[in-house]
Design a protein around this nucleic acid. Structure first.
Ligand SMILES: [Mn+2]
Ligand SMILES: [Mn+2]
Ligand SMILES: [Zn+2]
Ligand SMILES: [Zn+2]
Lengths: 134, 134
DNA sequence: GTCTGCTATTAGACTAAGTCTAAACCGGGA
DNA sequence: TCCCGGTTTAGACTTAGTCTAATAGCAGAC
């Protein structure tokens, strides 16, 4: 049986490639948007021969986050968003549409370490708010 | 009747200074922490002669945010946090304790506008994650 | 001082994000 | 084939936040 690219990625990260996980990872890796768990459930549930439960979506997302296959994004309250772009990057939120865009790390100057001795910074995230010119 | 400092601030921002609003604003202005609505309810409910309802806490917080008396802070998922520091500042999250510290704007270099023509940035927030040296 | 009307507050119902539980389901190894 | 640990499932449960409908309180009108 042909082992898909997605399956290889999951196995490489030590995650068993079940159909549910493959479908969800595949969806995330082929979208630019930063969908919520609900949007992911909506988009993938019809791609499986069996019912896909909400619990499985959350189980899968948490498993993929722990395995480093995807990232969580907290740009706004209400719901966690998920991101298959696992590079260390930032986000731009279009306040009109709510759309979230990736901002590569190297477009933002290095901030580090003017905070003083008291703070040992592991990482930092920048969230930009504004409008996309169409 | 002596008009408290808090009452003056509320009136100056066009908000009627009810006892509930005064108690909640007073609590926020005298704490360094960035409490959730639940923590605010817990801390203030015993400071009033009447019962304080959850709905009133949320109503009040939303009113104070709209009036510009306080700010919402979204550092982590789960619950919105509230901040009487209304200056444009950033936050440091101690990953051990969960404690959130203010980082004044001028400790962070200006990031603006290397994002390109497509993005019109209104504002940005930096969230640092790390450990406080004790 | 009383009346009146608007605003704020209240308890509790409701919604929505996320977790937990207990049972059924699978698939790889013996 | 049988067994066993991990996975999935439906649905109960928890928690943050909003909504509703009724009550309370207060500012101005008289
Ligand atoms: Mn999570
Ligand atoms: Mn809000
Ligand atoms: Zn992203
Ligand atoms: Zn702050």
């Amino acid at each position: 049986m042909a082992r898909s690219e997605i399956e290889k990625i999951l196995l490489a990260k030590g995650v068993k490639a079940t159909p549910q996980r493959v479908v969800i990872a595949d969806y995330l890796m082929h979208t630019e948007s930063h969908p919520t768990a609900d949007e992911i459930l909506e988009a993938t549930s019809n791609k499986l021969p069996v019912a896909l439960s909400r619990a499985t979506v959350y189980n899968t997302l948490n498993t993929l986050v722990e395995a480093g296959v995807i990232q969580e994004v907290f740009t706004d309250p209400g719901a966690t968003r998920y991101d298959a772009n696992i590079t260390d990057h930032h986000h731009f939120v279009d306040v009109k549409s709510g759309k979230i865009m990736d901002i590569p790390k190297d477009l933002v100057p290095v901030l580090q370490e003017k905070l003083g001795e008291k703070y040992k910074v592991h990482s930092y995230k920048v969230t930009f708010y504004g409008e996309m010119k169409d």
